[in-house]
Design a protein around this nucleic acid. Structure first.
Length: 574
DNA sequence: GCCGTTTTCGGCCCGACTGTTTTCAGTCG
């Protein structure tokens, strides 16, 4: 069993223990172990073999034994026993995704209403049956109904952060099959959409049957039997989205990739353009009459249509063809343009890497600088730093600086924007920092005018450098708080504060449209991983995808500035 | 269930908000 699956089981056990009413510290131990396993950047099976599990923080002999059983056998009797002891556990786990429902309330609902699925719970709400349950009222019922509706709209979608690695894994597995000449990622994943409902690959091969056979051997493929015709295969994946395969001959590869990448509006416009030029752009090739024009790659297709290559992230029918025609396509930012990262959490607050580990890894990743930003004092849940612990941390950062002359280590902080719009440290503390990421972590429920006013006030603070995750949304989980984004972005531009494109795949906040707005209003963007572990340090790529979709160039990005120019970029009006 | 200059037991992350209450449990970040 692989790392992710093991972590899922540990989390399931944590929930089952909560539902059984066992010590919350016990379930916390399982949750913490799940997080550790998920964030592992070594091979789990190898770690099990060498007996290194207990060296990991929070994993003792009992957890090591269970993890070993899971890796070796793929199952765990302890988990199965717990499942049998907790009725309706699967339904309760589903209910937990409804905002406002935790394990306690979810369990009460499942038991009192005798419901075993979201659909049944929804029906019970419509019958006003929640009103009879102590602790629930009309508002709770309404909120749950809204939550279920929202969950339904999330169903069958994956975060780009899950879909892209999955697509890469599937692509590599197919490319390694002897009957396959090449395999490429297409579809919404290639366009860098924030969430996707399918994974699409274009595979060059002469043998569709052999591909179906190869697919059926892949662990993530659930059902490889459906076969539509010789050139199209759709199978279901364990991740809950379909995998579409286009099987093509070499001469049809470029046009198939173009078609399967989309988007629909872009493709429609290209076909219209082809038609006007006496051509026919089809999925199997570009034709003049019955003659197929040679197009070895997508560049050649665009060239035949009189256009320069259009990056997949821009193919949304939002003016990119006109820009291509006029020669004004932007020189889109690339991951390698990022010279450093400025939003990283360490073990001083809720991160899992020490300062030394962060600096080591960022140096190995080739970054010129890294900004450490642990939480400020009001963020108690995240063990936010008091002024005194911040001072101690800065001494440790000083040591890391001396040990790593090759990378610049900045002392920052992710400072809470308090409900009144003030920052969570006094001026004399803020003055010791190289930069400040100011973020909202509380009072999400303010009315739009108040929330906007609160953030605007924080932006006017002369110590604010970057506005963290400006809308607070969590993709497929939590809607953004109510804010007037245009007012915030124009204030940021005016005040010289950068706005964050938080690259954590659960956030991607700002989103594509908001990044376009930021660009048009003149606000600079910081692509921040908001990393809490080793894997998180590599999340900037997802932010880069969003930035590219918004047409941003390196010049728009704060952390594309070289180290030597960073002070100037961070300085603002001080 | 983990951990230890608190070391084999007794701690372990906590304050604000919400909706339901009439004194607070549950949820959230």
């Amino acid at each position: 069993m692989d790392r992710e699956r093991v972590a899922d089981v540990l989390e399931e056990i944590a929930l089952l223990l909560d539902l059984k009413g066992e010590s919350p510290f016990k379930s916390r131990a399982y949750r913490s172990a799940a997080t550790t396993i998920r964030a592992l950047d070594r091979d789990l099976a190898e770690l099990v073999r060498t007996g290194g599990l207990t060296a990991l923080p929070g994993i003792g002999s009992a957890l090591a034994e269970k993890i070993t059983t899971l890796v070796d056998t793929g199952s765990l009797p302890y988990r199965d026993r717990l499942r049998a002891e907790v009725p309706r556990a699967a339904a309760i786990a589903e209910f937990l995704r409804i905002p406002g429902l935790g394990p306690r309330k979810a369990q009460v609902l499942a038991e009192k209403l005798q419901v075993g699925s979201l659909g049944e719970l929804e029906y019970a709400c419509h019958e006003n049956r929640l009103l009879e349950i102590p602790g629930f009222g009309a508002r709770a019922q309404e909120k749950i109904l809204k939550g279920i509706e929202r969950l339904r709209s999330y169903r069958g979608r994956l975060l780009l952060g899950d879909a892209l690695p999955l697509a890469e894994e599937l692509r590599a597995a197919l490319a390694a099959a002897p009957v396959v000449t090449s395999a490429a990622i297409a579809g919404a994943v290639r366009r860098g959409e924030e969430t996707v409902g399918e994974i699409t690959l274009v595979v060059e091969s002469e043998d569709t049957q052999a591909i179906v056979a190869a697919l059926s051997r892949l662990p993530r493929v659930r059902d490889a039997s459906p076969l539509r015709d010789a050139s199209r295969i759709t199978v279901s994946l364990d991740a809950g989205v379909p995998l579409h395969l286009a099987v093509v001959r070499p001469e049809g590869r470029a046009c198939a990739l173009l078609h399967r990448t989309g988007g629909a509006a872009h493709l429609g416009a290209l076909q219209e353009r082809a038609r006007k030029g006496g051509l026919d752009l089809r999925e199997d090739g570009l034709y003049r009459g019955r003659e197929q024009l040679p197009c070895p790659d997508e560049e050649a297709v665009y060239r035949a249509l009189g256009l320069p290559f259009v990056a997949p992230e821009l193919r949304e029918g939002l003016g990119e063809i006109e820009a291509a025609e006029a020669g004004t396509l932007p020189d889109l930012v690339e991951e390698r343009d990022l010279r450093g990262i400025l939003h990283v959490h360490s073990t001083w607050s809720d991160g899992r890497l020490s300062i030394e580990e962060i600096v080591d890894r960022c140096s190995a990743l080739g970054y010129e600088y890294v900004g450490i930003t642990d939480h400020s004092q009001s963020a108690r849940y995240a063990r936010g730093l008091t002024p005194e612990s911040l001072r101690q941390q800065q001494m440790q950062i000083g040591e890391a600086r001396r040990g790593h002359p090759e990378i610049r280590v900045l002392m920052g902080s992710e400072v809470d924007i308090l409900p009144d719009g003030s920052l969570d440290y006094p001026e004399e503390v803020l003055a010791t920092l190289d930069f400040v990421v100011a973020s909202v972590h509380s009072s999400f429920g303010l009315k739009e005018a108040e929330q906007t006013g609160r953030i605007v006030r924080a932006l006017r603070h002369p110590r604010a450098t970057i506005l963290g995750h400006p809308t607070g949304r969590l993709l497929l989980a939590r809607e953004p708080y109510a804010v007037n984004l245009e007012e915030i972005l124009s204030t940021a531009a005016r005040e010289g504060v950068c706005v964050e494109l938080n690259a954590n795949p659960h956030r991607l906040d700002l989103d594509t449209a908001a990044c376009r707005l930021a660009r048009s209003l003149g606000a600079r963007v910081a692509i921040d991983p908001d990393a809490h572990d080793a894997a998180g340090l590599r999340d900037a790529r997802f932010g880069v995808a969003v930035a590219r979709r918004a047409g941003l160039t390196a010049a728009h990005i704060l952390n594309a500035s070289p180290a030597g120019r960073l002070d100037e970029a961070l300085a603002r009006r001080r």
